[in-house]
Computed example of a mutant assay.
Amino acid sequence: MAGSGSRRVTGADVAREAGVSRATVSYVLNDTPRQKIPEATRQRVREAAARLGYAPSAAARSLRTGRSDLVLGLLPDWPIENVLGRLVQQLTNAFAEHQLTFLVHSSARPARPLREIWKALTPAAVLALDEFPESEAGAMRAAGIEVVMAVHGSEQGRRRPPLVAEEPIGAAQARYLVDSHRRLGYAYPDLTRLGVLARPRLDGVRRVCAELGLPEPDVRVISFEADGAVEAVKAWRAADPPVTGVCAFNDDLAMSVLVALRSLGLRAPEDLAVIGVDDAPGAALTQPPLTTIVRDTDAIAHGLARRVVDSLDRRTVPVHPLQDPLRVQVRVSA
């Protein structure tokens, strides 16, 4: 069999197997428009390609289309948990709908330097979740990478609005609590690298409190450890006036607050209401089950893919953040 050795199967091999010209193989496998090729011939070519295990060369495809089909996704050094993993999978699917391959690189040490990665891959576009230096972005563009986008922040040194806004999440949490709670707390993560997400979420809580004439939220930095929130809960309860509702950066911190409440002999929501973000798999299993903000990450993924594709196709791309549908998954904790 032609594909069983170490030599790469080529379009010429497929042409010989199918008994057609190389041009016909190219037209069929690339689905070239306005080519009058009988359906029986098309089927014969596809079957021959499948038998031989033919995979089109990425380099050849780049020469034909004038650009790579790779989109390089840059993950910052964040914990890769349920929501981020789900977003990566949904981005992979969304780009595939546009015949683009989403390839992810994490900056968590000791990863190879970013410049080595994009130079080796020469992607059509780079989609970074966090900000990165403008010097790096400039070098990418100079090398022919057409689209460089930072999802959650500006390229360092340049003011660019985020593609996905985090502030509405905090605002949604606060609005859910303020009908019953006149003093809010905020559970802020102790990982500084999450600040690009945490700061705007906290700003959303602050904005709602200011609009309603409520006190500034009582912000407590909490670790992700099981007992990390005990001192914060004590401080919220001892405040004057006491905090009765807490917005947590995400479900992990919210669950840490719930654990702290139980260890102190307190209950949610009677002693302290708690609302999280992300609807993590364990959120419904906590005691009590956690109320949380749910994002439509599939809509976010498709929106990001569309902006990258529109930029590659030289279409006008909006400057405002993507519409991010939010809903409150109401359970017992708040």
Rank of each mutant, 00 (worst) to 15 (best):
M1R: 15
M1N: 14
A2L: 13
S4I: 00
S6G: 11
R7W: 08
R8M: 04
V9D: 06
G11W: 05
E17N: 03
A18V: 03
A23P: 12
T24A: 14
V28M: 14
N30E: 10
I37L: 15
E39M: 10
R44A: 15
L52I: 00
A60G: 15
R61E: 03
R64S: 05
T65A: 07
L70R: 09
P76A: 06
V88D: 13
E97S: 02
E97Q: 14
H98D: 12
L103W: 03
H105V: 03
P110S: 02
R115Q: 11
W118M: 00
L121H: 11
V126D: 11
L129G: 01
A139P: 09
G144L: 11
V147Y: 08
M149E: 08
M149N: 01
H152L: 12
Q156D: 06
G157K: 08
P162Y: 07
E166Y: 05
Q173E: 11
V178Q: 12
V178L: 15
R183H: 05
G195N: 14
V196P: 09
V196D: 13
L197Q: 06
A198G: 11
P200R: 07
R201K: 11
V205C: 03
R206F: 04
R206Y: 04
V208T: 12
V208N: 13
A210T: 01
E211R: 04
E216P: 09
D218M: 11
V219Q: 13
A226C: 00
E231W: 00
A235M: 04
P241G: 02
V243F: 14
V257H: 07
R262P: 14
D271T: 02
I275Q: 09
G276T: 04
V277Q: 15
D278Q: 07
A283Y: 09
T286P: 15
Q287H: 05
P289M: 10
P289F: 05
T291L: 06
A301W: 02
D310N: 12
L312T: 03
R315L: 09
R315K: 15
T316E: 15
Q323G: 11
V328H: 14
S333Y: 00
A334R: 07
